[in-house]
């Protein structure tokens, strides 16, 4: 039988999905440009806010050398990347449902989590580039990244993205099943912005919210990234952060993948895969 010799190669499929989404993104050139501009504006806004706050060292910003601009720059630069790990998978499923391509892809001889993972590759690479752009803009505006330990920062970002992807898969499962209302992502994203240390240190929050921040991988990731990029922390020094993030990933990833399998099965029972 002609089909017997065929076996889908996972790296080739992931690359094909990446190439597909990159080509689609290229066809929306204006959106490309506008998103880049939004990066510039966001950095500029926080630069002037930090000027307003004054240059005096703030003890709560210790891991940013006391400078608010340096502190918030790391938060902004990585928040978009983490946010994509959280909401990108659900977004990809929703888009495929709306455009009608989900069923056409579901008939391919590959698993649903693999298709969903592939669909977030290009957005993740793009968000990573944005992270670099944020950091470069920050340096141009005076952020102090001279002694940054880039390898340590990349390790933290990778592990954090994996851990957060577990939550992102759960959000995708909800969209697969209920079509709308990515509640997990909304709640976690809003909570992250408030408590994880994106815009201000969690230490200024009331104790219950500080406790909540400890339940989010983003909190550890952002603290570790500030140590690596602003305080030149070595790999040894960030090992505890890496261990915590690995722990989150080990728990959340299987849960997220399981949630997608379960939701896909339920959608097959309801016959609702093509609905949106």
């Amino acid at each position: 039988m002609p089909t017997d010799g065929l076996k889908t190669s996972i790296p080739r499929l992931l690359f094909a999905t990446f190439r597909r989404d990159f080509s689609i993104a290229l066809s929306y050139r204006l959106a490309f440009l506008l998103r880049l501009l939004s990066t510039v504006f966001q950095v500029a806004v926080f630069f002037f806010i930090s000027k307003l706050m004054g240059m005096a060292a703030n003890p709560l910003l210790e891991n940013a050398g006391g400078r608010y601009f340096d502190y918030v720059l790391i938060g902004l630069a990585f928040q978009r990347l983490f946010s994509l790990s959280l909401t990108g998978y659900a977004g990809a499923v929703g888009e495929a449902q709306r455009t009608g391509t989900l069923e056409a892809q579901a008939i391919l001889p590959v698993s649903m989590p693999l298709l969903i993972t592939g669909a977030n590759l290009w957005p993740t690479l793009y968000a990573s580039l944005e992270t670099v752009i944020y950091l470069l803009l920050g340096v141009l505006l005076g952020a102090s990244l001279a002694g940054a330990n880039v390898v340590a920062a990349v390790l933290i970002a990778l592990l954090a993205s994996l851990a957060i992807s577990g939550l992102g898969f759960m959000g995708a499962a909800i969209i697969l099943l209920y079509k709308r209302g990515n509640a997990v992502a909304w709640i976690v994203e809003a909570t992250t912005a408030l408590v994880a240390g994106v815009y201000f240190p969690p230490e200024i929050l009331p104790p219950p919210l500080q406790s909540l921040s400890l339940a989010l991988p983003q909190t550890y990731a952002l603290a570790g990234l500030r140590s690596a990029l602003l305080q030149s922390a070595t790999i040894d020094q960030i090992l505890p952060t890496l261990a915590i993030l690995a722990g989150f990933a080990i728990v959340l990833l299987p849960l997220g993948i399981g949630a997608i399998h379960l939701a896909y099965r339920k959608a097959q029972e309801k016959g609702s895969l093509a609905q949106y």
């Binding site: 065929l6 889908t8 190669s9 080739r12 499929l13 094909a16 190439r19 892809q105 391919l108 001889p109």
Partner: peptide, 9 residues
């Protein structure tokens, strides 16, 4: 091309 990769060509 995308679907061909999915089928393993």
């Amino acid at each position: 091309q995308f679907f061909a990769s999915g089928y393993g060509l």
